[in-house]
Design a protein around this nucleic acid. Sequence first.
DNA 1: ATAGGGTTAG
Length: 733
Amino acid sequence: METLSTPLPSLRRYSTSVNNDHDHDHPVFLHIKQCTNSSQLGQIHAHMLRTGLFFDPYSASKLFAASALLPFSSLDSARKVFDQIPKPNLHSWNTLIRVYASSPEPLQGILIFLRMVHESPYYPNKFTFPFVIKAAAEIFSLCVGQALHGLAIKASLGADVFISNSLIHLYLSCGDLDSAYRVFTMIGEKDVVSWNSMITGLAQRGCAEKAFQLFQEMEEEGVKPNDVTMVGVLSACAKKLDLELGRWVCSYIERKGIRVDLTLSNAMLDMYTKCGSLEDAKRLFDMMEEKDIVTWTTMLDGYAKLGEYETAKQVLDTMPRQDIAAWNALISGYEQNGKSKEALSLYHELQQSQIAKPDGITLVSALSACAQLGAMGIGECIHAYVKEQGIKLNCHLTTSLIDMYSKCGDIKKALDVFYSVDRRDVFVWSAMIAGLAMHGQGRDAIDLFSRMQETMIKPNSVTFTNVLCACSHAGLVKEGKTFFNQMEPVYGIRPGIQHYSCMVDILGRAGLLEEAVEFIEKMPILPSDSVWGALLGACQIHGNVELAELACRHLLELDPENNGAYVLLSNVYAKTGKWDGVSRLRKHMRVTGLKKEQGCSRIEVNGVIHEFLAGDNCHPLSKEIYSKLDEIMVRLKSAGYVPNKSHLLQLIEEDEMQEHALNLHSEKLAIAFGLQYVEVSQPIRIIKNLRVCGDCHSVAKLVSRLYNREIILRDRYRFHHFSGGNCSCKDYW
DNA sequence: ATAGGGTTAG
């Protein structure tokens, strides 16, 4: 065993004075302070036990504090020391709560607090509260926090600035901004920490404006901001995406001579990248003498989010250590910019290389990529990985899984995930409602919405978008109106532009075009392109030329590049036999160089994604696919199928050519491919980027009957489940 | 003895 470098000076001499006044100069305390490893501390512990000094609560608390707080100490051994103290004093109790509060098990801090209240003769003092409140904040327990707040007031400690600052932090962590602000305003002498907690908390909670306002008030009240303040203020600038303000803050820091440490530099860097100035960021990055992993990750994230993937990858390759956050930054950069395939291939590379272990965030990004692509095989692998690794489903992951299964067409699996978890936040509920909505199960979506309210989880604006969307896809006009009208008076959510669009969609689809127009005219906010787009879509369904022209005009005013508007209007002309209108549009599109977005369908077989563009013959099995398609057409026609050409953009004049063009629609190629290569027991899942045309819809219905196959087709707006000659949308789409 | 900070997420 290792021995102490210096012999302990005659411990025994002091051992008799245990019950006397505490001797602050007791040499053993000096030794405790000077310990550099746990075995030295262990020896002192043994000495104190032998001499009986350990049985003096004050002396024991000194040893215990050291074993709990010195840099080399571990929580486990500290706990063992504590358990040996016959009558721990208040200081020891406080210290134990303190170390638990910042340990991986903060709940223990609260349990120890309760034990102290029940078992010890002490009342919590002004030191106890900050520690135990921190523990409550760590586990985001608002109700424990409120109880502690009450106890602190009862103990006449409600005005203590340390306790108030802890409470501000607690309330902000739990999202109770009002209570935090109430505590804040009650502090007589706010110190810099009070301001910092409030500013940082508000900035993180999305109240950047208010955070900046407080920073100005702080200055007016003459409290000097420090480096921590500026981190919070910069975080507010980043959230506001306000580069000018951010630059001003950086010059303010320089002007006031505020200490710039690594964290503050990183915050400046983050502000620059979030506000979109890679130049400023790069300049700062090159100037920074000290860099840590956060510096590198922030820079990498900036490049990735702004679409500079090459540079981002270079940063990843050159950074000193690639932790999972770095990979996540790049993967989520791809995913958020719609580059799902790249996101998944990077995820694959990460798994192959085993440089870092995927965490919940990695999986959320990868699952979102799967959802976008409709890559269910890969999505299922990720789900299996989650189970294998015993990764606990948090609400983020649950939401992503539900979203992935829904968007890949397996609403049953989405529901399985939903029912398998015991914690559901507003995002989980909203995702499930959205899933049911896109599968046309409007009634179920509405039922789920009612059940959500029984759980006391408050719907947000996204929830309402999804509920209205459910009403739209299922043709529930009356219900949609009711929900919309309840939003503000009952739920306190002011309808946003997306809710107005949904309402126009609900009314328009149901054929209530005049009412939809009236609704638009009465809108208190300016109608957006999505509102006019919804009206135009409805005009296509119901063949209303006049309103279609009106909607198209407004739509193009707001978004002149919107090629979808031309396609929809052209479809209305074609449907109503107005061929002059069709050719006028065609000419206009040719002159302006606008092209119809190319149709693209995707199908996954054995984890490989096959992509088909309209009329493309790039697929290695192209020949087979076309001959299969011919066979299908013959079989369909003998069953009475007549091609419906009104769904063409009418860019092709010849009749035969038109029919040929129809057959080239990407979803038909995918169906032909799926019939051959997807196992018979499995449904054929197809993802299309545009809306399915009427002809393809009829073909899919017939194929499902004649070939006795289930076809699940996701188009731009929703799912169609074809089986036995019918579609789940009941032809209402 | 006490409180507050930056990167990755639907």
